[in-house]
């Protein structure tokens, strides 16, 4: 059984292993980094630490968040570096049984499939569990969407 932090990207519910999440903060001032991949929103100051902000919507080929959404930043640590995943909202921590996990269907959008580890069946619908390591895999840097 694993625990996931659930969050929203548009109408899609996604989850990240709770063990990898270090912090959830409001999205602060982000300094754009020229030449970086489009899904890298920039760098931001999180209480004296520099966090690289990832625009998950762009990463997954979604349109920018509509007006009125106050994005949240989920801070995770990957390979010693801190990243902030920008999402529309953060909901709760849920317990997931291995039995509820399904392989990602072949019909899932390629960009989603690259970063998802499984689909979780929940009462309210489906949830995509993201593998944060895959969001920032080195070989992806050079083939930025």
């Amino acid at each position: 059984m694993t625990q996931l932090v659930t969050m929203m990207l548009g109408d899609t519910e996604i989850g990240i292993d709770v063990g990898t999440v270090e912090d959830v903060v409001r999205l602060g001032r982000v300094t754009r980094v020229p030449l970086a991949a489009p899904w890298i929103a920039g760098v931001m100051n999180l209480r004296g630490h520099v966090v690289t902000a990832i625009d998950l919507r762009t990463r997954l080929g979604m349109p920018p968040a509509p007006q009125g959404v106050r994005p949240k930043c989920v801070v995770v640590s990957i390979g010693g570096d801190s990243f902030g995943l920008i999402v529309d909202a953060v909901d709760e921590v849920i317990n997931v049984d291995a039995a509820d996990c399904r392989r990602c269907p072949a019909t899932l959008d390629e960009r989603w499939r690259q970063v998802s580890s499984c689909i979780v069946q929940r009462e309210g619908g489906l949830l995509v569990e993201l593998d944060i390591g895959k969001i920032i895999t080195p070989d992806r840097f050079f083939m930025a969407a």
């Binding site: 970086a36 991949a37 760098v43 570096d81 801190s82 920032i136 080195p138 840097f141």
Partner: peptide
């Protein structure tokens, strides 16, 4: 230090 995706630039 910069994170890996940025130092790769």
């Amino acid at each position: 230090p910069v994170s890996r995706p940025l130092s790769a630039l």
